[in-house]
Design a protein around this nucleic acid. Structure first.
Lengths: 205, 205
DNA sequence: CTTGACGGCTAATTCTGATTAGCCTATAAT
DNA sequence: ATTATAGGCTAATCAGAATTAGCCGTCAAG
């Protein structure tokens, strides 16, 4: 990773731990292994570093969205998979999603940074809402909708059913962000949540 | 409200909007209607103002906890109420809780401030977790447990049932904090959530 | 009535932290 | 071989904000 990229990387780490205002350019520089004034050979200002992070974040998420859309829109192909979704497969889906968001390094740091900065900046609030509220509901709603139309889940309100699936995942995610020591327990809770979800929405026949 | 108290009040408002580091003592002073140096007649430093807010917050929540415990521990008295809890009453319970947390001025500002500052300060993270994670689950778990033992809800796992009740409420709360324009829609979603919750956990007989 | 505490003000002062100036070295292109 | 550029450094500089100094009016207790 070149210096310019490393600056973004270390800055993101620090911003996600303390928030923009509590990070000094000297901190960033030290992590990168250079002195503060040298940062200015790469970025015009501290703010420019932050902006570059946001740009990169947007880029990544566009890519991710495209990747998801390719699968998501090819519903006929995907639906074959989900038509036969067992409880184990559902468990796996929820756990994968949770662990990906929890541990994926970029996701984790972006999310924490957005959490801190969301009230300072409408744009960041919107990104947060998109990433952790709207997109998961859309995506998981599409999946669960397919499972439902295959007859494995029963509801007359897919949207709320999806909320019932996702809200606990989101809730546990924020708990673990705040206190990683709770992760083990959260994973157990997650499993029980999904099992009960499956029981509840699966058995009303 | 005397000046000393007003300082806390205005400081809390500002901290909840922008976070500690982005608020200047001059901002606080201006809101209070005095000049910055006069603040120091009341508090030793900016940090002392923040600390006083935390102290007051702790005091309030101890009181609140006591109030809840009085009701909560007197389960025999309360259970009469919840034994006959209709869907409408359940709806009301969820909505009350949601609106109280969303609109109560202290709650709203404390929560937003904690959201911003949680990663800077383990103590704040713990307070957040207690207030918005553990306490609601305990309290609502007690209530729903009573409703369940009255035979109106059915589950073999009250803890997860409570998570299913509360997680969507928490989720909608954070959505509205981030974007108050979503409040109207969130209230509708909340109602549908509770109705579906009631249908799901109520009908498995 | 006078005095001392309280709480306000203006004008410094001090600190902190971002940014700029100006220099140096290595390396890659002409 | 020369030179331009990239990227690093140290030593200023600048700006913004917290804090302190020192003054003043009010008012309640003696």
């Amino acid at each position: 990773m070149d210096t310019k990229q490393k600056i973004l990387d270390e800055a993101l780490t620090l911003f996600s731990e303390k928030g923009y205002a509590n990070v000094y350019v000297a901190d960033i520089a030290e992590r990168v292994g250079i002195k503060a004034p040298s940062l200015y050979k790469h970025y015009k200002s501290k703010q420019a570093i932050f902006d570059a992070i946001i740009d990169e974040m947007n880029k990544r998420f566009e890519q991710q969205a495209q990747a998801l859309n390719i699968n998501g829109s090819d519903a006929t192909a995907d639906s074959e998979i989900y038509k036969n979704m067992s409880e184990d497969a559902l468990l796996e889906l929820g756990r994968q999603f949770f662990l990906y968001f929890l541990h994926d390094d970029y996701n984790k740091r972006f999310r924490k940074m957005l959490t801190i900065e969301q009230f300072n900046n409408k744009q960041l609030a919107d990104i947060y809402t998109k990433l952790y509220v709207d997109d998961p509901l859309t995506y998981q709603g599409a999946l669960l909708g397919m499972v439902a139309s295959a007859g494995l889940l029963h509801t007359d309100n897919v949207e709320i059913m999806t909320l019932h699936f996702y809200a606990p995942i989101y809730y546990l995610l924020t708990v673990c962000d705040r206190d990683p020591a709770r992760e083990k327990k959260a994973l157990k809770t997650l499993d029980e949540h999904i099992k009960q979800f499956n029981r509840i929405y699966g058995r009303n026949k």
